[in-house]
Design a protein around this nucleic acid. Structure first.
Lengths: 245, 245
DNA sequence: TCACATTTGTCCGTATGTATC
DNA sequence: AGATACATACGGACAAATGTG
């Protein structure tokens, strides 16, 4: 009898995904369940292909997905092979940078989002920062000053300052949001010619902000942060405009 | 003469990356430069492999990277092949979901980040929303009510409401941030048994919020939004606790 | 409806590069 | 330095999907 395709019984497809996608998902599930943990070593490509009963190429494509998604790293050499690793946050910030490079995000949009994100985060920093966080932030400023004195542009230290702030909020969502925003900012400043650099002046702003945080002066910290981010944003915009001229 | 490795001339490595990574980057650059645009059709795998002078396996691994990063889509069949496509935002929200499933982000952290992000976004919504945005939001509420009456859980409409809000802020960073957060929320509610569902009550909250936005009543809108997100967050937490018991 | 061409998906065999012991 | 075990890469082959005449 011919199947009645008009009936309400709908057959679900036996196989939705490509083989390499299924393998990738299978390994991801083992990680989600906690059966596979960071630093666990996976069998070699050949052995994995044998166990999943697939060809080498198929298995390699599955590894590519897992690698790019931040679930595994691959080491070459005799004791090498795939290792469970957690670099998802890295993956996310790379994608944000891609989006910026594709001009899907403008500098104005970035500055506004940065402003609101860091402002929203700041009260949690003031409430939740441990002594160790404060120490890290102080140490960051010392380092930045040292670099500035040695005529090394301290923009990497200055970017790290905001990462440390996010960490002190004790909220991983803020960590990844700030990480993503700063990945774009870092990419921008790393391409910058030294004469455009203003990162020395930034250190003082960071120091003032940190002192307000230590005093738990929420209003002062908020206005310092807002002023600082908007200034950097304007500088950002100005440089882009000049380059485009 | 033996090369003086102690000299200051440092040879940069000829090849940093694996071949498939270089190919992926090369195609990405063409996209960044605007030479390749969405809907442009790329040559077939075999032709691309020929042009890059690599094997097909290597080229396929490059395509996997581009596909997962949201730069291309691949269609099978006679007129198929790789097509330039822009689904980067999709890629990012998938990674956030991965991070949540790996328990790198807790429900409390998600709720707090959601609260601060949407609050920070709200003033831009009030300032920048066009009539068309308001119409979309109104239409969303009509749809949600229709679904609720037909006994179809309107949680997808309710999630869409927040996406529409982000769109009305006219800031792509907010769009992707809210998209990422709501991807996690959507995943959560889609697994939920119907008896736990509260999405009918949510519609009223959305309606009140929308009215405050239309009236440009910033304070009222802000407090309605805060109240709504915190309630959903508590519900979220409660269900997770019950499941874990 | 059917046969055909094109393209992706998959497998296999082989060779080379590379890190470790 | 040599052996070993692994990833990287190439080329050929066939299966499966898909649009076209």
């Amino acid at each position: 009898m011919i199947p009645d395709t008009s009936s309400k019984i709908i057959f679900t497809p036996i196989k939705n995904k490509r083989t390499f996608e299924e393998i990738s998902l299978e390994i991801k599930r083992l990680i989600f369940k906690g059966i596979l943990k960071p630093n666990d070593k996976l069998p070699s490509e050949i052995e994995l292909a044998r166990q999943f009963n697939v060809g080498r190429q198929t298995l390699r494509e599955a590894l590519r997905l897992l690698e790019l998604s931040g679930f595994i790293a691959i080491q070459k050499g005799s004791t090498g092979g795939p290792i469970i690793e957690d670099t998802i946050f890295n993956t996310i910030s790379n994608s944000f940078l891609d989006a910026f490079l594709m001009k899907k995000i403008t500098t104005e949009e970035l500055t506004i989002a940065r402003l609101e994100t860091e402002k929203g985060m700041l009260k949690y920093v003031i409430d939740n920062a441990k002594d160790s966080d404060i120490r890290s932030l102080k140490e960051n400023i010392v380092q930045a000053k040292k670099h500035a004195k040695a005529n090394i542009r301290p923009f990497r230290d200055n970017i790290e300052f905001h990462r440390l702030l996010a960490k002190a909020s004790k909220n991983q969502m803020f960590v990844i949001m700030v990480e993503s925003i700063m990945a774009i900012v870092a990419d921008f400043f790393s391409r910058l010619e030294p004469e455009f650099d203003v990162s020395k002046r930034v250190i003082e702003k960071h120091e003032a902000l940190l002192n307000a945080i230590i005093r738990r002066d929420r209003d002062k910290a908020m206005s310092l942060l807002e002023d600082h981010i908007l200034k950097v944003g304007k500088r950002f915009q100005k440089i882009i405009d000049e380059v485009r001229k």
